[in-house]
Design a protein around this nucleic acid. Sequence first.
DNA 1: AATGTAATGTTATAATGTAACATTCGTTCT
DNA 2: AGAACGAATGTTACATTATAACATTACATT
Lengths: 165, 165
Amino acid sequence: MARLKILREFTQGRHKHADCVTTALSVAEACCQQEGQRLTPLRKRVLQLVWNSHAPVKAYQILDVIRHEKSGAAPPTVYRALDFLQEQGLVHKIESLNAYVGCGAPGHVGSGQLLICRDCGEVAEMDDQEVLELLAAKSRDVGFEITSPTIEIKGRCARCRSKHG
Amino acid sequence: MARLKILREFTQGRHKHADCVTTALSVAEACCQQEGQRLTPLRKRVLQLVWNSHAPVKAYQILDVIRHEKSGAAPPTVYRALDFLQEQGLVHKIESLNAYVGCGAPGHVGSGQLLICRDCGEVAEMDDQEVLELLAAKSRDVGFEITSPTIEIKGRCARCRSKHG
DNA sequence: AATGTAATGTTATAATGTAACATTCGTTCT
DNA sequence: AGAACGAATGTTACATTATAACATTACATT
Ligand SMILES: [Zn+2]
Ligand SMILES: [Zn+2]
Ligand SMILES: [Zn+2]
Ligand SMILES: [Zn+2]
C-alpha cells in the first residue's frame, strides 16, 4: 500500500505530546524557511495552540488563549494567522466542524483525507493517491474535472474500537 | 460503471427547471408517505426553495423569502425544516459552503459525493460504491472504521469546461 | 371532548467569520 | 542612518450562521 501516506496519526493512548508539538513547530520553521515565508511569533503561537490536542481546535478557543497573552487580540488576529497557516499547508480546516487541526507532513497541496473519531474526537490524516485517482476517474465519467476535493470521514479509531467493542 | 449512481445532475444549459422542482416535490411526497413522515406545507415550501436553483442555497436566503410569506418566521423556522429534510435525505448540507442542495434520489443514507462547479456554481451528486469501498479499505488499513464520509469536490463541470477551454 | 405528541411560533443569544482602516514592523535602497 | 515600501498586526465594527429555551398551536388517538 505504497501510495497511502499517513500525514497525521491517531495517538495510541498516552504519549509524550510535547514532542508532537515540538516536531510540528520545527517542521513548520523549516517549511516557512524553505518557502521564504515568515513564521512570526504570533503565527507560531497559533500553530502551537492548534497542536495543543489531537482533536480539532476552534478559532475562538485559540482567541481565548491569545487574549490573555496579548491585549488587543481580536478575531482577525486568529483568523489571519489560521489563513496563513492553511496557505502554507501547516493546518487544515475541518469544514464539517468549523475547526482546525495541524498537518503532520505539510508540503502537499490541500488536505488529504481527514479521519475523525466520533468517540475520542481525535483526527488523523491520510493522503492516498488511489482514492484521489479513483475519484478523479469517476468525476471524469460525469464530465467533471476536480480541482480540490474535501474529504472528511467520521467513524471510530482503532483504539476506541478496541475499547468499547 | 454500474456502481456509479447519479443522484443529481448538472444542467446542460437551459432546461425546464419547473419540472426539476415538480419532480423533486413529488418524490419527496412519496418518500415521506413511505416513511410515515409529515411533509408539512412549511417543509415543502422550504424544499421548494432549496430546489429553486441548481446551485447551493443558503438558510438565510430561504428565510428572507419565508419572512415575506409568513409573519413570525425566524431562523429556527428554516433550520428546523432543513434538519427534517436532511434526516429524510431530501436535502444535503454542503459543509464547505454552509449551504444546501436538494437530493434528486433520496432514500440512500447520508450524502454521496457532491461535485461543485467553481464556475457556474452548480452542484451535482454522484454516489459511487467503488469510491466508498476504496475509502473504507484504506481507512481499515489505518485501523479506522467509517460511519459517514463527507465528500465535497470542487472543480469544473462539463459545460463550463467546454465554454471557457 | 380529553390527552399527548409533533410542529411551529417567539425571543434572545451564541458561535463563526469578515470588512475596512490605522498603526507598527522589517526590509531594502540610498 | 534615514526614507520608503510592503507585510503584518491592531482596532473597531459588523455580517453571517446557528441554537437554546420556552410558549403556543395543530394533529392524531382515545
Ligand atoms: Zn501528541
Ligand atoms: Zn477514537
Ligand atoms: Zn432544473
Ligand atoms: Zn459549471
